[in-house]
Design a binder for these strands. Sequence first.
RNA 1: GUGGAUGUAGCUCAGUGGUAGAGCCCCGGAUUGUGGCUCCGGUGGUCGUGGGUUCGAUCCCCAUCAUCCACCCCA
Length: 426
Amino acid sequence: MSKKIQAIRGMNDLLPDQSPLWQYFEDQVRTLMRRYGYREIRTPIVEQTALFKRSIGEVTDIVEKEMYTFDDRNGDSLTLRPEGTAACVRAAMEHGLLHNQTQRLWYQGPMFRHERPQKGRYRQFHQVGIEAYGLDGPDIDAEVILLSARLWKQLGLDAHVTLELNSLGSPEARTAYRDTLVAYFERHHELLDEDSRRRLSSNPLRILDSKNPDMAEMLADAPQLLDHLDEASREHFEALKARLDAAGIAYRINPRLVRGLDYYSRTVFEWTTTALGSQGTVCAGGRYDGLVEQLGGKPTPAVGFALGVERLILLLETLELIPAESQRGPDAYLLAMGERAEREALLLGEQLRDALPGLSLQVHCGGGGFKSQIKKADRSGARLALILGEDELEQGQLTIKYLREEREQETLDQATAIDRLGERLD
RNA sequence: GUGGAUGUAGCUCAGUGGUAGAGCCCCGGAUUGUGGCUCCGGUGGUCGUGGGUUCGAUCCCCAUCAUCCACCCCA
């Protein structure tokens, strides 16, 4: 038994070496959303358990065995959100955002699922998601995909991800197909492996995905989802494909692509990569026209996606696509020699920050020899060392030493030094 | 939830049934006010945790916790 208190399994600390990369990613997302006219919504990370049961589906893995559920002090059953869509719908309905209007929303934040952690899969993980409400045409499906495609391009990932596309049809068509499929599997019950027999009741569409070679022949002859679409869904799907073609977005039709959450209908898609091992999906989404009504609202078409931040960060690291400027240190490091100068340094630091709002300045604290201070200036990653020694203090001067370029250091009046610093910024 | 691998210094890892090692990092010195290279010296470990076997366990055994990988599932 370990007595040390440590982080909860599958929940990670984000350390300072890592946070610049996250901030870079988040900045990219934020500007992208603004460019497409999506507005941010923030909801609590805890909701009533019933919200997730009713939206995600009672018999899904998430609801059956992965939710962090606990009783509030008053006896209510609460759950840490396992995904973002349900809460987004709840909040939008609760505040009348869906009343007679369309909405384009995005969100970002931690999600919680009690799964066995592995590469790219954690118990607390982060998603960025978008949700568009009140629009039922293929144009908005296409926009959502175009937005995601632009993000990959911005991040330099476009050559490393693949778009997979499918349509589940209307809920009626999907249910009918599901029955047809189950009937087919039951006729071949003796060919099903143990896993597939279990899925027969929980998620029969998943059986199509089985890698078991003994079942390959039987699966090849199974009825195809795309052959059982209702007419309206088929037209919708064709129109979406046409728009993607026109925009030059490549995709692969994957008839076996089904999503794990019950609320999807019609369009479903996934962006996948082969660079992350077995957790290859970096972004997934689709249309969920029935969800708002299912949660007690008026019938409202909706489409969206969620992307896994940890997976994308991992992908950026794996492919070495981390921009250098996201890792840089302060502009300058101010060090001081001598007791009086050390006292002055803090004040001088404030004056510099007053004069140069764009300046990132680290002031040395903790004393130490000159050599060690210079060393720390270097290690901080700063481009400039600012030296306030006894000589400079006497003369009201400051020495600027260039740590990253071949250039003589210069000792200037403090006012001149501030001007020089201003020139060196940006 | 199932299977496999791994836990030794802040990090990456050697190692042996008989008192614990390297490299990097950090600190100091060679150079009373000038970093990166070099050289010298130093700090730092209840060998994941608990139990068992043993004269003696970091090493062998059991349990437990954690990490990683895969299955499953998914972002």
